[in-house]
Design a protein around this nucleic acid. Structure first.
Lengths: 337, 337
DNA sequence: AGGCTTTCTGTAAACGTTTGCATAAAATTG
DNA sequence: CAATTTTATGCAAACGTTTACAGAAAGCCT
């Protein structure tokens, strides 16, 4: 049986009204020093804690934000989550984390649940292109910021320029003398992979290299066993004796699979084939060889999304949504020659 | 400006009282089919969503649980979190995730915040041995389950038997012919590492092998760059030409560091030195060589902790707390000969 | 001393629900 | 058909806060 101490108990104990207690606690409005002492003492004696629900109900806000991501087991997300949480905490906000498993129904379910005056706003690494629920939120004036995956010009977002990043990575391979660059293209249902694919093509084109069908590999599946896609793709290429001297993997996990496949065929990375990844996961530097990759600033992206959201919560919706594009950074380690 | 639709608006639109609307929505109490129709229609027309805070305040519960962990970037936790969240969701509960950064002050801050009638109970992978705040919760009748790290016989918990698991791992090394087994011992401030250390010593003893001081390595620091500890420890051993044929690393991350150090010294795993880890991280099978390790059933532990907690929430505190000890499983891959 | 601020405190309404109680209508019973 | 049960609905209080308003006391000015 949990016994609940309310503001009334404190008021009675201190011999004042509840409003006075409230004023002491919140610091709103004047209160005599002597009474303040009495109240504080009663608070301490009774171990009083203001009821979050009552406070939120009255004030019309909870200082809580909803963070909706596909899957925390996808290793790109832990850093994002910490960026969000740390920044939120510093500003007095708490985060409710939700995993959707890439399932738009679960995503909708969570949005429905949390928008019932539970959270003051949302950060969404949304699942797919079915985002009517997001636009609906936005229309109703609910603060929303999209993160990593943006979809629509009409919603605030924090992303990187995937086209440019892929372009940079592939151009680096070109510049270091690679001529036959395979790509593990990622799930083309997602805009971000389409962009990376586009960057790959553009980089080849600008370098005067041909775009070869047989070097375009990988499935559209997401999220099964992430490195598997990379392994299968490159394994198939090698089995078919297709000639290539580098791999642009659209994620680090796919790069790990690719390296595994290359080694299994008795070849060396990077001497025989260079591999470049995308993401810069926390353990990518621990691989053998340490992975060259395009680093996304995950932590900072999370942090920035929170700041953006808190702005929206405080000031209401902007006239025009703004999309922050952050820089991805090329990190060269030992998997490229 | 967010416009809020309340139960009153629905009542007015449907031409009934608020109590009737409430009954329609919650399904408590009888209501005529015709009125139900009218109400449902009004609900739909107005896009009504019951206010979570008001409901929680009235009902005295929120169907929310607080999950407090040291750091989601520690790769053992994503699986735990999913186990917790998935199981909670199936039972209509939502999870608030909090990272403490191994800082007991932040942990206390979160506990203070969430116990203000926000969550119905806590799952804690607690930080240290300073757990007065946990015992306080428990004393006040607040449902609490400890996870992974348990501290006290007086609080319900879900853990593995770290002594036994370490014993198993080291015994396997002994059985496969290793005679000089080094340990990277982990942070001895934490009970779980003390237990693993104890298991190591006991296994050597039972096998009639000597416990050599110089083979006991690793620092008490936690959480800086986790694999670094393993790297430094084994690097030092090799630099000093200390002779050993196997390493028992108390975490997979330490094992990764150890492997790196061994390779850097021009030695091979497992031909020259076997390495066995502890945890079975999601990417441990992707390493080179794939890591042999003691697998902890992280997802299931999370799931079980939730079920335990929901029991406590529903039935109140047990007379006697019960500690669930789950099985760790030895997984042999290619890092041991 | 009378009027005017300023400081302090209490009363009561409000936030949006749920639910016990009362009542009315309808259905069932002997 | 009167008596009883069942079904359906509304009224109003309650959950634990915050805050507008009002009033009392005290301080300051001519």
């Amino acid at each position: 049986m949990i016994v609940i101490v309310t503001i009334k108990d404190v008021a009675k104990k201190a011999g004042v009204s509840t409003s006075t207690v409230s004023r002491v606690i919140s610091g709103n409005g004047p209160v005599n020093d002597a009474t303040r002492q009495k109240v504080m003492e009663a608070v301490r004696a009774l171990n009083y804690r203001p009821n979050f629900l009552a406070k939120g109900l009255k004030e019309g806000r909870t200082k809580t934000i909803g963070l909706i991501i596909p899957n925390i087991r996808n290793p790109i997300f832990p850093a994002v989550v910490r960026g969000v949480e740390d920044t939120a905490r510093k500003q007095g906000y708490t985060v409710v984390l939700c995993n959707t498993d890439e399932d738009v129904l679960i995503e909708r379910e969570y949005v429905e649940k949390l928008r019932k005056r539970w959270v003051d706003g949302f950060i969404l690494a949304t699942v797919s292109e079915h985002i009517d629920h997001v636009l609906e939120l936005k229309k109703k004036g609910f603060p929303v910021v999209l993160l990593i995956r943006n979809i629509d010009k009409h919603v605030d977002a924090v992303i990187i320029d995937n086209f440019k990043a892929a372009y940079k990575a592939v151009s680096y391979l070109v510049k270091t003398g690679h001529k036959k660059i395979a790509i593990i293209k990622g799930n083309q249902q997602l805009a971000l992979y389409r962009e990376r694919f586009r960057g790959y093509k553009q980089a080849l084109k600008d370098a005067g290299l041909p775009l070869k069908e047989e070097l375009i590999t990988g499935e559209d599946a997401e999220c099964v066993q992430w490195s598997r896609d990379g392994y299968n793709a490159i394994n198939r290429l090698l089995d078919q004796s297709i000639d290539f001297d580098a791999v642009f993997a659209t994620t680090d996990l796919r790069a790990i699979g690719a390296i595994r496949a290359i080694k299994d065929h008795g070849l060396r990375v990077p001497e025989d084939i260079s591999v470049i990844g995308f993401d810069n996961l926390e353990f990518s530097s621990l691989l053998d060889p340490p992975l060259s990759t395009m680093a996304q600033p995950f932590y900072d992206m999370g942090a920035r999304a929170v700041n953006k959201l808190i702005q929206l919560i405080k000031n209401g919706q902007n006239a025009e949504p703004v999309i922050d594009v952050m820089e991805a950074e090329l990190i060269i380690r030992k998997s490229t020659r």
